[in-house]
């Protein structure tokens, strides 16, 4: 079932980076994720490329197929259309940016096939 949108995507939410620095969610940059993952002993940043976007079972949901990491593992997630992903070099992006902005006041680009999103895996999995 689709994942409900958690509260930390609301504009103004305070996010703590791995080095302790605090930033607002709307001010996060690609480097913040990369540097935080470099500090982390457990988490690793992966590049996840959007391969397909299909409608979900719920009219407000979409099924996004990602190609994850160097191994290009195929992973599908079903999320609400307003769920934002962080695209490398671009920032927050969702399948329905108008709805994300309306609900969370978070400025978003349109998430498209070919976009490369920030995702996490466990270092121990490798």
């Amino acid at each position: 079932s689709p994942v409900a949108l958690p509260p930390f995507f609301m504009r103004g939410s305070i996010i703590q980076l791995a080095d302790g620095e605090l930033k607002r969610v709307e001010d996060l940059k690609t480097e913040d994720f990369i540097q935080s993952a470099e500090i982390s002993s457990e988490l690793k940043i992966d590049s996840s490329t959007v391969e397909r976007i299909d409608s979900g079972q719920n009219p407000n949901a979409v099924v996004i197929q990602f190609s994850v990491g160097e191994l290009k593992a195929q992973v599908c997630v079903e999320v609400l259309v307003e769920y934002p992903f962080f695209v490398f070099g671009q920032g927050w992006s969702s399948c329905c940016p108008d709805r994300t902005t309306q609900l969370f006041e978070l400025s978003c680009a349109k998430l498209c096939v070919g976009d490369v999103c920030v995702s996490l895996t466990l270092r121990s999995l490798r």
């Binding site: 996060l28 994850v68 895996t121």
Partner: peptide, 19 residues
Amino acid sequence: VPVFPWHSLVPFLAPTQSD
């Protein structure tokens, strides 16, 4: 004011062993 860890914002996309 609640403070959220950076990694809560990022989807955890773990490849499965099958497929």
